[in-house]
Amino acid sequence: MYKTMTPGPTNVRENVRMARSLETTNPDIDPAFYEFYKETCELLARLLHTKNNAYILGGEGILGLETACASLTEPRDRVLILDNGVFGRGFADFVTMYGGETVSFVSDYHRPISVSELEDFLKKDSDFKYATVVHCDTPSGVLNPINEICNLLASYGILTVVDSVAGMFGEYVNIDESKIDILCGGSQKALSAPPGLTMLWVSDRAMEMIENRKTPIASFYANILNFKDYYKKQEFPYTMPISDIYGLRAAAENVAADKNILERHARIAAATRKALTAGGLSFFLEDGFANTVTAVSVPEGLTDRQILDTMKNRYHVMITGSFDTMAGKVLRIGHMGENANEADLCITLRAMTQALKDLGFPVACSMDEAFQKALAEDENR
């Protein structure tokens, strides 16, 4: 059995597993399940500080991104893609497959999007139906300032679609304050439920624009309109994965009860970065580190595969590499949700220390001890 410390899926608490094992009803025809679903969506809305409606869709987090783009995009709509990471760039694929025309605002993948540079761009061209932005771009762990970005876009009348799959519940998100029109989330990251569910939070403005399209949405499954009146009609567009939703509800209640969840993520992430630095490692990012995932550069003379395989096969700890432009260049440690705790990070950093030593890299210290020291210093501050 491996200790899994990847940036999602995360470890799942016992009460979440038990919730998924409960006896189920027929979610299509049982009024009690419609109440349960509605109450769960209302809890999700409260957790992210919004009056917007939340919806739970049956499908992994990527479904939310496609659903947002499918529902908003009509042929020849101009859409602004904020691209400072692999997933940020990837939004363009969803837009173009539904007939939209993309314009990319590309910035350095080693740091967050500059709000002032974006504003300079918009002064020259702001004729966009909506813009897409990734909160935490998981392949690099860069964190973008969505509050400032989305408020700026809103001032130009541009709707916003935000991917916070790897950000929410580990980073502060206030949908109403940020004026986000569609926020996309996934069950398997900091929420710490099993993979398989998408969550969407949709503003009235976005829903009105979707309802007033001139052309029909070119999808059934990726169509948010099919959920709009589910409670009034007592009808879902497809049979909901009821056991998964039972588990998600338990995970959301865990988050609601954890009053220090954001502080915990920040402390664990900061201590992890200090430990890796003390060990003689460096980071892919120059700035804008997320509190949910850290991307550390592969030391010269080694490969990511050597380190990953040694950690897994000898020390039974699984972290991961990255992909696309960062393939082979970085290792990623997930410290989100149930994984953001002292004991698991100690095990992970001890395994990384020993694996690097086994491979001949001169680790400057025991990184698990450096991690504990950083936590102690933070507590005594």
Rank of each mutant, 00 (worst) to 15 (best):
T50A: 13
L308P: 10
K129V: 12
G185D: 11
L349Q: 01
L191C: 11
K232C: 01
E208T: 12
P9K: 03
D83L: 00
I158T: 10
H135S: 13
A45T: 12
R111H: 01
N260P: 00
M209S: 10
E338I: 03
F289N: 10
N151H: 03
C136Q: 07
P194C: 02
N380E: 15
E74A: 05
D229I: 03
G59H: 03
E300I: 09
S243I: 07
I113Y: 06
A364E: 15
I268G: 02
I217Q: 07
S107A: 13
K232V: 08
Y156P: 09
K232D: 12
V103R: 04
Y55Q: 08
G59T: 05
G360Y: 12
C150E: 04
T10Y: 07
P362N: 10
V317Q: 00
I261A: 09
I149F: 08
A92C: 02
A92H: 05
E211L: 10
R20Q: 15
I347D: 14
F91W: 15
R249D: 14
I62L: 09
L47I: 03
L349R: 01
R13V: 10
M326Q: 08
L72V: 11
T239I: 05
G334D: 04
D30F: 01
F361L: 01
N291C: 11
G8N: 08
I242R: 01
L118P: 02
G100P: 07
G8K: 05
N380A: 14
G247T: 05
S71L: 05
G337N: 08
E23S: 14
E74R: 02
Q188V: 03
A250C: 04
F91S: 13
V202T: 01
L143N: 04
A257V: 11
L47N: 07
A275F: 04
T348E: 03
I245G: 08
D287S: 14
D120E: 15
I333A: 02
S140E: 00
I210D: 04
D93L: 00
A222V: 01
Y231A: 10
